[in-house]
């Protein structure tokens, strides 16, 4: 039980670290949001699951599992929302996409008047 927890914790913190590396290396905001805030979601969830396994001796007396579960569900619900809002804000600010970008359908559709620019509702 303890070993499983430790493995999960290691994988989780490694995943968090790769997210940080992505945060430093990526060329533009959009890719940074991609790697930075979302690879860290799985990292945080894995770490919490691992910690919940590691505390199995005290499951009967103290509420470890419930709190960890609340944290996991909470991160799963809030993280996509906050990163989506950030990305939309970046697009509304017209921060340019990096030179590596191959296609931008949203811009084509805005230019073709299929839909208006994303702005505040």
């Amino acid at each position: 039980m303890e070993i499983i927890g430790q493995i999960f914790l290691l994988i989780g913190s490694f995943s968090l670290m790769t997210a940080a590396v992505g945060l430093l290396r990526m060329p533009d905001v959009y890719n940074r949001v991609q790697t930075g805030t979302k690879a860290s979601t799985l990292g945080a969830i894995m770490s919490f699951i691992g910690l919940a396994f590691m505390t199995y001796e005290n499951w009967g007396e103290v509420n470890w599992v419930g709190r960890f579960l609340v944290l996991v569900i909470f991160i799963l619900i809030t993280n996509p929302v906050s990163s989506h809002v950030l990305m939309r804000a970046a697009y509304a600010m017209k921060i340019p996409l990096s030179k590596l970008t191959v296609v931008d359908k949203l811009k084509e559709d805005i230019n073709n008047k299929v839909l208006e620019e994303p702005k505040d509702e």
């Binding site: 290396r25 890719n31 990096s98 590596l100 970008t101 296609v103 931008d104 359908k105």
Partner: peptide
């Protein structure tokens, strides 16, 4: 850094 980003 093999990325190839775009909006589809």
């Amino acid at each position: 850094l093999p990325i190839n980003p775009g909006i589809v």
